[in-house]
Design a protein around this nucleic acid. Sequence first.
DNA 1: CTAGCTGTTATACATTATATATAACAGCTA
DNA 2: TAGCTGTTATATATAATGTATAACAGCTAG
Lengths: 129, 129
Amino acid sequence: MFIELDFESEDPIYLQLTRQIVEGIAKGELLPGDALPSVRSLAADIGINLHTVNKAYQQLKQEGFLQIHRQKGVMVHPDGIPKASETYKATLAKNLRPFIAESICRDLSKEEFYKICNQIYADFARREK
Amino acid sequence: MFIELDFESEDPIYLQLTRQIVEGIAKGELLPGDALPSVRSLAADIGINLHTVNKAYQQLKQEGFLQIHRQKGVMVHPDGIPKASETYKATLAKNLRPFIAESICRDLSKEEFYKICNQIYADFARREK
DNA sequence: CTAGCTGTTATACATTATATATAACAGCTA
DNA sequence: TAGCTGTTATATATAATGTATAACAGCTAG
């Protein structure tokens, strides 16, 4: 797992961290059961505070991505990531809505929008087993 | 234009405002040249501060959605909204990426993802002329 | 048993983002 | 002149973000 943070970004560090971990799982670089660095070592590695790492881990635990044992450490949830629920789909729709609205305003066709999505999907598929 | 704000939401008010205006344009409820309420009247209408409205208007002006005249007031840009540039597409891709990554993790197929997008598109197309 | 590693909790602090409250200004119009 | 624009300035309050220390409980390797 390579973590690359942009400290100039408006996106908070802990959010960038959660996203990169989720990307790692999506790419298959991180598999269920795989261990993640301890909050202290990861924080030291990327030069941030351990609480910032902890916040990211806690959020991913809450969402079912990670399993955390007080002594064993952190791992990608060994049972796999929870499948998309109806609630998740509804939230996803709510989140995607503004992007689609703006695309429509800017005359970006649905096909072009899907083309962009396809490229993203391709980027993840490339590295899946 | 109906503005509905959720004061309990984590999303800041000014962002909810910008999104609803963009949605209004996407739906065709707001057409190029259409006047928008003054910062004061809109603020009074929805019970928020005029600076919050102004922040939303300024951001939409910056992005080319609105035209603002110091005395005439605010309107949807009469020349229409700037078409999707390559920069915009790149930003869009960067923004969509985390959602697609999480969807993949949660075993949501590309087809199901597009189905959700289609429903959103349908929701906008319903009201277009 | 001790040393060292886990995550966790608590406290404190600084900075920034968000939102509100007032006030004033310049320019246009009725 | 009165009243409407957007704009600017100042002040304040609250929450979010990030850092800095410190301490705790529980496990494990030496």
